[in-house]
């Protein structure tokens, strides 16, 4: 379950509860992540799913649903 794993990684990184995170949650807008958190989270996701997320792709993520869908597309 990609979304569950993404949620877990983000919650861990940002010190928030997993149930605060939905598909619509914005990392920077809702969870107060800064640009350094965003880089670290992308690294953790790359490790977890053994993929590469180029910066230009990461810039387009509006919410956590976008991230999950992107990863599903990559590993499919």
């Amino acid at each position: 379950m990609v979304f569950e794993k993404v949620k877990h990684i983000i919650a861990e990184q940002l010190g928030v509860e997993e149930d605060e995170i939905t598909m619509q949650t914005s990392m920077m807008g809702d969870l107060e992540a800064d640009s350094l958190d965003a880089v670290e989270i992308m690294m953790a996701l790359e490790d977890e799913f053994e993929i590469e997320i180029p910066d230009e792709d990461a810039e387009n993520f509006k919410n956590i649903g976008d991230i999950a869908k992107y990863i599903e597309g990559k590993i499919a």
Partner: peptide
């Protein structure tokens, strides 16, 4: 072990 792209952005700060 993992290469330069895995060094944390929090390493310096």
């Amino acid at each position: 072990t993992k290469g330069p792209n895995r060094v944390s952005p929090f390493f310096i700060p």
